[in-house]
């Protein structure tokens, strides 16, 4: 495969804060339309790595491309081509559901007409038609999560980054959320997702596990399970994470 076929491709990506190396020479590729699980214990460097990929944090060393743009020099272009959903389902609580969607769509430069069409599509897809004018602070957390996802993908980005998108949500809602992820992935969007739920790792096409700032395992869930002679991803994670020396 040549480089153009990768949504994300990084080599030797490193981030140091003073003498502390949060991310230590990680290299990996994510194919277009792939659902890529990015696992690791707290403090392993996941969030820092993700911030570098999103253009929120500049790498100390290393090179790579995200959505075809150079992470060191073209972070402004990267920002146009990605979507980002933060771990707190961040939305403007004082705005209505529609106002939130419109705001983020406008920020990503969509025209009024496109916004109207996409909002209608999103509302029927998420079954949120009757909540359009409800303030976000008044809707249940499961709906907030769906809305945050819709806000992150309304501009049809090449890649969507999901930072622990299912934290604090019940299993049924989590399951439904993964259906959404599958849907956008089948439409060709690349999904880069971090999670704490190891059962969710099974839903990913490929999974990487970070330990102490390094990627120590990277493969399909099936291959990882057979490599570590484990029945579930949970067991795989325990075996791999045991190598960690860094505290939380």
């Amino acid at each position: 495969m040549n480089e153009d076929n990768y949504a994300i491709s990084v080599r030797g990506l490193t981030k140091r804060f003073g003498s502390f190396t949060a991310v230590d020479h990680i290299s990996f590729d994510v194919g277009r339309g792939e659902i890529f699980g990015f696992l690791g214990a707290n403090g392993a460097g996941k969030t820092t790595a993700m911030r570098m990929l999103c253009g929120l944090s500049r790498p100390t060393a290393g090179a790579g491309t995200v959505a075809g743009c150079d992470i060191n020099t073209q972070s402004e272009m990267i920002k146009r081509r990605i979507g980002y959903m933060s771990q707190k389902f961040s939305l403007y609580e004082g705005l209505t559901v529609t106002e939130n969607l419109r705001l983020f769509a406008t920020i990503y430069g969509m025209s009024d007409r496109a916004i109207r069409e996409q909002s209608n599509r999103v509302f029927s897809l998420l079954d949120m038609d009757n909540m359009r004018d409800t303030l976000v602070k008044d809707i249940p957390v499961g709906w907030k999560q769906k809305l945050a996802f819709a806000s992150a993908t309304i501009h049809r980005p090449d890649i969507v980054f999901l930072d622990e998108p299912t934290g604090g949500v019940d299993p049924v809602t989590r399951r439904k959320f993964w259906e959404l992820i599958y849907r956008v992935s089948s439409e060709g969007m690349t999904v880069f997702v971090t999670t704490h739920y190891l059962d969710e790792a099974e839903y990913c096409n490929r999974v990487s596990i970070m330990v102490d700032g390094r990627i120590t395992a990277l493969d399909t869930p099936e291959a990882l399970k057979s490599e570590y002679h484990a029945d579930t991803m949970d067991q795989v994670f325990r075996i791999v994470a045991r190598q960690a020396t860094r505290g939380e």
Partner: peptide
């Protein structure tokens, strides 16, 4: 605190 600043900063704005 709510994280919406992150959403703005990660956007092209």
């Amino acid at each position: 605190e709510t994280g919406t600043m992150d959403l703005l900063l990660v956007s092209p704005v």
